[in-house]
Protein backbone atom coordinates (compact mmCIF):
# COMPACT_ATOMS: atom_id res chain seq x y z
CA UNK A 1 0.00 0.00 0.00
CA UNK A 2 1.62 3.31 -1.01
CA UNK A 3 2.55 5.33 2.04
CA UNK A 4 0.48 8.38 0.97
CA UNK A 5 -2.80 6.47 1.14
CA UNK A 6 -2.35 4.75 4.45
CA UNK A 7 -5.07 5.76 6.91
CA UNK A 8 -3.09 7.07 9.86
CA UNK A 9 -4.30 8.40 13.19
CA UNK A 10 -2.48 9.39 16.35
CA UNK A 11 -3.85 8.08 19.62
CA UNK A 12 -3.76 9.14 23.22
CA UNK A 13 -3.85 6.54 25.99
CA UNK A 14 -7.58 6.57 26.89
CA UNK A 15 -9.10 5.37 23.59
CA UNK A 16 -6.55 2.55 23.30
CA UNK A 17 -7.24 1.47 26.89
CA UNK A 18 -10.95 1.26 25.99
CA UNK A 19 -10.11 -0.74 22.85
CA UNK A 20 -8.03 -3.21 24.87
CA UNK A 21 -10.52 -3.43 27.74
CA UNK A 22 -13.30 -4.35 25.31
CA UNK A 23 -11.15 -6.53 23.00
CA UNK A 24 -12.18 -4.46 19.99
CA UNK A 25 -8.93 -3.91 18.12
CA UNK A 26 -10.64 -5.22 14.95
CA UNK A 27 -12.89 -2.15 14.86
CA UNK A 28 -9.86 0.10 14.92
CA UNK A 29 -8.19 -1.99 12.22
CA UNK A 30 -11.23 -1.65 9.98
CA UNK A 31 -11.11 2.13 10.21
CA UNK A 32 -7.35 2.77 10.26
CA UNK A 33 -4.25 1.23 8.71
CA UNK A 34 -1.84 2.50 11.34
CA UNK A 35 -1.93 4.18 14.73
CA UNK A 36 0.98 6.37 15.79
CA UNK A 37 1.65 6.92 19.48
CA UNK A 38 4.27 8.94 21.29
CA UNK A 39 6.60 7.25 23.77
CA UNK A 40 4.76 8.61 26.82
CA UNK A 41 1.49 7.02 25.64
CA UNK A 42 3.25 3.65 25.33
CA UNK A 43 4.58 4.10 28.88
CA UNK A 44 1.05 4.78 30.16
CA UNK A 45 -0.39 1.79 28.29
CA UNK A 46 2.22 -0.48 29.89
CA UNK A 47 1.46 1.04 33.30
CA UNK A 48 -2.23 0.17 32.80
CA UNK A 49 -1.41 -3.47 32.04
CA UNK A 50 -1.71 -3.40 28.24
CA UNK A 51 1.90 -4.37 27.54
CA UNK A 52 1.03 -7.65 25.77
CA UNK A 53 -1.59 -5.99 23.53
CA UNK A 54 0.79 -3.18 22.59
CA UNK A 55 3.68 -5.58 21.87
CA UNK A 56 1.47 -7.65 19.58
CA UNK A 57 0.33 -4.59 17.62
CA UNK A 58 3.87 -3.21 17.41
CA UNK A 59 4.90 -6.53 15.91
CA UNK A 60 2.27 -6.32 13.16
CA UNK A 61 3.10 -2.68 12.51
CA UNK A 62 -0.43 -1.53 13.30
CA UNK A 63 0.92 0.60 16.14
CA UNK A 64 4.10 2.62 15.75
CA UNK A 65 5.92 4.55 18.44
CA UNK A 66 7.25 7.95 17.45
CA UNK A 67 9.77 9.97 19.43
CA UNK A 68 9.32 13.72 19.64
CA UNK A 69 12.16 16.08 18.76
CA UNK A 70 13.52 18.29 21.58
CA UNK A 71 11.63 21.22 20.04
CA UNK A 72 8.40 19.20 19.95
CA UNK A 73 8.97 18.14 23.56
CA UNK A 74 9.10 21.82 24.50
CA UNK A 75 5.88 22.41 22.61
CA UNK A 76 4.30 19.45 24.44
CA UNK A 77 5.32 20.97 27.78
CA UNK A 78 3.41 24.13 26.84
CA UNK A 79 0.35 22.11 25.83
CA UNK A 80 0.40 20.07 29.05
CA UNK A 81 0.41 23.34 30.99
CA UNK A 82 -2.58 24.57 28.94
CA UNK A 83 -4.48 21.34 29.63
CA UNK A 84 -3.73 21.59 33.36
CA UNK A 85 -5.00 25.18 33.34
CA UNK A 86 -8.30 24.19 31.69
CA UNK A 87 -11.38 24.42 33.88
CA UNK A 88 -12.46 21.07 32.37
CA UNK A 89 -9.84 19.12 34.33
CA UNK A 90 -9.61 18.46 38.05
CA UNK A 91 -5.97 17.45 37.73
CA UNK A 92 -3.93 20.65 37.81
CA UNK A 93 -0.53 18.95 37.57
CA UNK A 94 0.88 19.52 34.02
CA UNK A 95 3.08 16.40 34.23
CA UNK A 96 -0.06 14.27 34.45
CA UNK A 97 -1.22 15.64 31.09
CA UNK A 98 2.09 15.23 29.28
CA UNK A 99 1.10 12.08 27.35
CA UNK A 100 -1.96 13.72 25.78
CA UNK A 101 0.16 16.82 25.11
CA UNK A 102 2.70 14.65 23.28
CA UNK A 103 -0.10 13.01 21.30
CA UNK A 104 -1.53 16.41 20.27
CA UNK A 105 1.97 17.55 19.28
CA UNK A 106 2.51 14.41 17.21
CA UNK A 107 -0.85 14.81 15.45
CA UNK A 108 0.26 18.32 14.46
CA UNK A 109 3.38 16.97 12.72
CA UNK A 110 2.61 17.09 8.99
CA UNK A 111 4.98 14.23 8.00
CA UNK A 112 3.00 11.79 10.13
CA UNK A 113 0.04 12.28 7.78
CA UNK A 114 -2.48 11.69 10.57
CA UNK A 115 -5.98 12.80 9.69
CA UNK A 116 -7.13 12.82 13.31
CA UNK A 117 -6.22 12.16 16.91
CA UNK A 118 -8.05 9.66 19.14
CA UNK A 119 -8.69 11.64 22.30
CA UNK A 120 -11.29 11.28 25.08
CA UNK A 121 -10.57 13.69 27.93
CA UNK A 122 -12.52 16.91 27.62
CA UNK A 123 -9.75 19.28 28.68
CA UNK A 124 -7.27 17.84 26.19
CA UNK A 125 -9.95 17.85 23.48
CA UNK A 126 -10.59 21.54 24.11
CA UNK A 127 -6.88 22.35 23.68
CA UNK A 128 -6.61 20.18 20.54
CA UNK A 129 -9.66 21.88 19.01
CA UNK A 130 -8.25 25.33 19.81
CA UNK A 131 -5.16 24.29 17.84
CA UNK A 132 -7.34 22.95 15.00
CA UNK A 133 -6.23 19.35 15.46
CA UNK A 134 -9.10 17.12 14.18
CA UNK A 135 -10.17 14.58 16.77
CA UNK A 136 -12.45 11.69 17.61
CA UNK A 137 -13.12 9.94 20.91
CA UNK A 138 -13.64 6.24 21.55
CA UNK A 139 -17.43 6.62 21.63
CA UNK A 140 -17.25 8.48 18.30
CA UNK A 141 -15.25 5.62 16.80
CA UNK A 142 -17.93 3.14 17.89
CA UNK A 143 -20.70 5.37 16.49
CA UNK A 144 -18.86 5.70 13.19
CA UNK A 145 -18.30 1.93 13.02
CA UNK A 146 -22.01 1.40 13.71
CA UNK A 147 -23.08 3.93 11.08
CA UNK A 148 -20.83 2.07 8.61
CA UNK A 149 -22.65 -1.12 9.67
CA UNK A 150 -19.46 -2.73 10.92
CA UNK A 151 -21.11 -3.28 14.31
CA UNK A 152 -24.68 -3.13 15.62
CA UNK A 153 -26.12 -0.61 18.12
CA UNK A 154 -26.33 -3.53 20.58
CA UNK A 155 -22.59 -4.12 20.20
CA UNK A 156 -21.86 -0.42 20.77
CA UNK A 157 -23.91 -0.57 23.98
CA UNK A 158 -22.18 -3.77 25.12
CA UNK A 159 -18.71 -2.31 24.48
CA UNK A 160 -19.45 0.92 26.36
CA UNK A 161 -20.87 -1.11 29.25
CA UNK A 162 -17.79 -3.30 29.34
CA UNK A 163 -15.57 -0.20 29.55
CA UNK A 164 -17.85 1.24 32.24
CA UNK A 165 -17.60 -1.99 34.28
CA UNK A 166 -13.83 -1.64 34.15
CA UNK A 167 -13.89 1.92 35.44
CA UNK A 168 -14.13 4.22 32.41
CA UNK A 169 -16.35 7.16 33.19
CA UNK A 170 -19.35 6.47 30.89
CA UNK A 171 -22.63 7.13 32.69
CA UNK A 172 -25.66 4.89 32.22
CA UNK A 173 -27.49 7.88 30.69
CA UNK A 174 -24.67 8.34 28.16
CA UNK A 175 -24.73 4.68 27.11
CA UNK A 176 -28.52 4.56 26.83
CA UNK A 177 -28.72 7.76 24.77
CA UNK A 178 -25.98 6.65 22.37
CA UNK A 179 -27.78 3.32 21.92
CA UNK A 180 -31.19 4.93 21.40
CA UNK A 181 -29.89 7.43 18.87
CA UNK A 182 -28.14 4.67 16.94
CA UNK A 183 -31.32 2.56 16.98
CA UNK A 184 -33.30 5.53 15.71
CA UNK A 185 -30.73 6.11 12.97
CA UNK A 186 -30.83 2.50 11.86
CA UNK A 187 -34.63 2.19 11.78
Amino acid sequence: MPIDRVRVAVSNTGPLISVFQSDQIEILQQLYDRIEIPLSVQTELVKHGAEADVSELLETGFIEIVRLSPREEQFAQTISQEIANSRLTKDKEPANHYAEAEAITLASRAEIGALEILLDERAARQIAQARRVPLIGFAGILIRACQRELISPETVRAILMRCQEQGTHYSNAFIIEVYQRLMKGSS
Binding site: I17, R144, R181
Partner: peptide
Protein backbone atom coordinates in the same frame (compact mmCIF):
# COMPACT_ATOMS: atom_id res chain seq x y z
CA UNK B 1 -6.96 -6.75 33.77
CA UNK B 2 -6.41 -3.38 32.17
CA UNK B 3 -6.99 -0.47 34.48
CA UNK B 4 -8.88 2.60 33.31
CA UNK B 5 -7.13 5.75 32.27
CA UNK B 6 -7.86 8.91 34.30
CA UNK B 7 -11.34 7.69 35.41
CA UNK B 8 -11.88 10.95 37.27
CA UNK B 9 -11.54 13.05 34.11
CA UNK B 10 -14.66 14.31 32.37
CA UNK B 11 -15.45 12.68 29.02
CA UNK B 12 -17.46 14.01 26.09
CA UNK B 13 -21.23 14.39 25.84
CA UNK B 14 -23.46 12.29 23.56
CA UNK B 15 -23.74 15.21 21.10
CA UNK B 16 -19.96 15.57 21.00
CA UNK B 17 -19.56 11.83 20.37
CA UNK B 18 -21.98 11.96 17.42
CA UNK B 19 -20.32 15.12 16.10
CA UNK B 20 -16.92 13.33 16.36
CA UNK B 21 -18.29 10.48 14.25
Amino acid sequence: KITSHEPEEELMSVNEAFEDA
